[in-house]
Write a protein that binds this DNA or RNA. Structure first.
Lengths: 336, 336
DNA sequence: CGCGTTTACGTCGTTCGTAACGATA
DNA sequence: TATCGTTACGAACGACGTAAACGCG
């Protein structure tokens, strides 16, 4: 058994059992891959794939078990290379982050800028998607960090470090009736208007719909979008009242939109940054984590470094002490 | 990076950083091992060991991290070979068990006989030792099963499957005063005689001493031994009253000794069979497990097979429903 | 000078790529 | 006939073992 054989095996699996495609992906010849697979099967004394004529048909039961373990082996081999690189070339490498639109557009720019200043030689890759897509990316591709809100159940293989909490803000055109209320905004007020908000906010993992339902209200959602920019565009068009993450209601918007703080109307959300339990993190990755969650003390970071399960992390933070991030101030405000 | 290089690396570590010894253990030449180590260090770009002149001095910090991951890789590689063997040669292989004297002498013989009948081609290896020694063996050597009683805290890397419970029995020479009591035996009765019992029974992990202390008694232990045969020998000599596991008071002893059931006097002990969380078990190993814990249903065995942590197992069994094993009947009795 | 590691070198087995062949739809 | 996998073969590479040199106590 050779590492290369296991690598080829995984390449074949990851390319739909097409040896030719796998060989191309590995920048090697097709007969070489074919032969190594055969050698591996011979050494183990079992078929990893069924054959349909000459083509590969399916993965056998034994094949699945071997593949699972081959993945562990390749991951740990990668971990060894990673930590070697960390000792050798501290400042170089690559950092791939998968995150949602809100984070990518409103939260990360400052952090990324700071990080690039500190580590100009690190290649940064940002991948944007929904929570589900991010979860897929984490298990399929080589993504170092996932950044998202809630949805912890989608990310069971990750260590999730809570970073900050945030509330919703209501966005309306200048001079909208809601800006002239004689009382603090309530859900009843909101329910009287057509709403424009996030797609996922009304999916299973969100609490917006439930917040209305708890008061016996049925909100009139006329439009949903994946990102706040689209929502704000439609609010500007007068389509309805927007509900967005407070971070997304930034200063520049306040020229032609009114922003009403909705703190208290909906449950607070917690945004976290996560990485694979079994991955080795480079030094610059911990630095990125520190930039993204600056409230973490040096001692807590040390504990995070040693953590092997989510419960280690959960013990470390008191949810009610996490900073709350607002919009226009563009910084992190103190918790109320 | 090659699997062989990692194997050599671990061999060097496991032979006290002596390359020559490592080479001999691997049945290969010393310069070959030396060279592969050098190549590995070159590829990774870091020193795995410090050098004292030409000799290896110590493991570097980076070295420790690499070694840990190399162990995972070699273990999974071994797992792949194991499961391949299980598909290919179901009936052949080897099974190493580490256990205590009581199990080896009184419980395992029947089970081993049955297992050998079923799998005559499997090499059986029994290693006997104290709980601590068993724990050492599990982490150092390639032992498939550990069988012991209590001491769960020593075996954190294992999955422990509870097998049966047992009580103590009191062993005295024929005609001893204790056999003529007009009431059920109590700790007070016992405390009036010199006692002969297990060494470990009065160590930290045992509950015997505490049982006496709870009644304000100070037992007079005149002799301790590691195994029941020795204890019984001294009881025969009239040295004192023996306290042994009920399994150890077997039928043949009753010719020249009286056995008094001590059920209720001391807390019941639970004997378990354990295996490494991260090991692949061969089919015949599961069959052995079934022989050792016959109360496990086919469905429970399936759950055990899938279990990845001890808590999965704990949910599976109600401690109060585990069978209680007695002595002379030489079988498993129903729970009281 | 013994012990242990590294260097040097010749041999042998393995891997790799090209080219040809075989099978399948 | 186009696609995909296997077989065949020569060239390059890498691992291994022997022999010898080196450094340390």
């Amino acid at each position: 058994m050779k590492l290369q054989q296991l690598k080829y095996l995984l390449a074949i699996v990851d390319n739909g059992l097409n040896i030719t495609a796998a060989a191309e992906r590995m920048y090697t010849s097709q007969p070489g891959v074919s032969k190594q697979l055969k050698l591996l099967e011979e050494e183990l004394g079992l078929q990893l794939f069924t054959r349909k004529g000459k083509s590969l048909g399916d993965i056998t039961a034994a094949g699945h078990q071997v593949i699972d373990r081959a993945r562990i082996i390749m991951r740990e081999a990668e971990n060894i290379r990673t930590l070697a690189a960390d000792y050798f070339q501290e400042e170089e490498g690559s950092l791939s982050i998968a995150t949602t639109h809100t984070q990518a557009r409103y939260v990360l720019p400052d952090i990324v800028a700071e990080f690039r200043k500190r580590y100009p030689k690190v290649d940064l890759h940002l991948h944007q998607g929904t929570s589900e897509q991010i979860a897929d990316m984490m298990s399929a591709q080589d993504i170092d960090f996932a950044i998202a809100t809630g949805s912890a159940e989608l990310f069971s293989g990750l260590i999730l470090v809570p970073s900050y909490r945030w509330d919703r803000s209501i966005v309306v055109p200048k001079g909208h009736e809601l800006t002239r209320l004689d009382h603090k905004l309530t859900l009843h007020d909101l329910a009287r208007y057509p709403l424009v908000t996030y797609v996922f906010s009304f999916g299973g993992q969100s609490s917006l719909k439930r917040a209305f339902a708890n008061e016996g209200l049925e909100p009139d959602v006329v439009f949903t979008a994946r990102d706040a920019d689209v929502i704000k565009t439609y609010v500007r068009m007068g389509l309805g009242v927007g509900i967005v993450a407070s971070m997304a209601a930034d200063c520049s918007d306040r020229k032609d939109l009114e922003v009403i703080d909705a703190e208290g109307l909906f449950p607070r959300s917690t945004t976290w940054i996560g990485y694979r339990k079994d991955a080795v993190l480079r030094r610059f990755m911990f630095d990125f984590l520190k930039l993204f969650a600056p409230h973490i003390s040096a001692q807590q970071l040390d504990e995070i470094r040693r953590a092997t399960s989510q419960s280690d992390i959960d013990e470390l933070f008191d949810a009610s002490e996490l900073p709350v991030r607002g919009g226009c101030a563009d910084g992190v405000n103190a918790a109320t």
